[in-house]
């Protein structure tokens, strides 16, 4: 069983190493990830939002919907964990 797991891991390692050769270099301006919307954000965020911090502009404006989802997730997780932990404590006032 252990040998099988090791073999699977070895095959997976080979696959990953093979695929790694095709990845673009880090920070490559010609990479697909840098060609789509990134240039627009970098060039226009200051004039669009008056916000020098590009990260904040992307987080709260261009990707505001995503951030709304994150906030909902945090709220729901906190609420759910509180409800689970409250269970079994009767009706006592916290």
């Amino acid at each position: 069983m252990k040998a099988l797991a090791l073999a699977i891991l070895g095959i997976f390692l080979v696959v990953l190493l093979y695929a790694e050769g095709d990845l673009p270099d880090r920070g490559d301006p010609e990479a697909p990830a840098s060609m789509h919307v990134s240039p627009y954000y970098i060039e226009r965020s200051l004039s669009d939002t008056r916000t020098p911090n590009l990260v904040t502009a992307v987080l709260a404006d261009y990707r505001g919907y995503d951030t709304l989802g994150e906030t909902v997730v945090i709220f729901a997780a906190g609420l759910a964990s509180a409800l689970v932990l409250l269970r079994g404590r009767g009706n006592r006032d916290t």
Binding site: A57, A60, D61, T71, G78, A82, T94
Partner: peptide, 26 residues
């Protein structure tokens, strides 16, 4: 947009603040 970002950040801060304290209290 500038002020919209600010208000939204304030809302996020309130949510994170309240949630973390609630979890700690429980």
């Amino acid at each position: 947009r500038y002020y919209g970002i600010l208000v939204v950040e304030a809302g996020i801060a309130l949510t994170v603040w309240g949630t973390l304290v609630v979890v700690f209290d429980q």
